[in-house]
Amino acid sequence: MKISDLSVLNKFNKDNIIVEKLDTLINWSRANSQWYFQFGLACCAIEMMAAAGPRHDLDRFGAIPRASPRQSDVMIVAGTVTLKMAERVKRLYEQMSDPKYVISMGSCSNSGGPYWQHGYHVLKGVDLIIPVDVYVPGCPPRPEALIQGILELQKKIKLESSLGKEV
């Protein structure tokens, strides 16, 4: 199954009947409604806001900000994760309902970034406490880079199989 074949809409023919795996339908809906958790930790949050704004318009991909962890599917860790904040980030991740995904945005949350050697107070990569699906490099990444991260996550979600065996 190729990723390009996954657009269910293309499969409608004249009689408006579509035959497809249920997995495809579920993945199609999940991949195109990535409601992300609205919180930012540092300067990357500014770029995330720009990505959500009218010029870059993340809403095109079904990604809209939600202010509650219960309602969000994706956590965009946008910024420096200090040790004081790390426990809060972990708790918020645990409060999200499955299926949940994490995008690590920017150098700081990827690896500690500029704080990697002398930052006594910085967690050296958010993947030390929560599992990360997509890493977006940059310091901070441009909104286009974050959008590519969202699209990469879409590709990843579309390969999932929530009902049958793992693909």
Binding site: L83, A86, E87, W116, Q117, Y120, L123, K124, L128, I129
Partner: peptide, 15 residues
């Protein structure tokens, strides 16, 4: 000041 090895179970790598 020496950076601690761990803070609340979170490792702080130094190199």
């Amino acid at each position: 000041f020496e950076t601690p090895e761990y803070y609340r179970g979170m490792r702080i790598p130094k190199d």
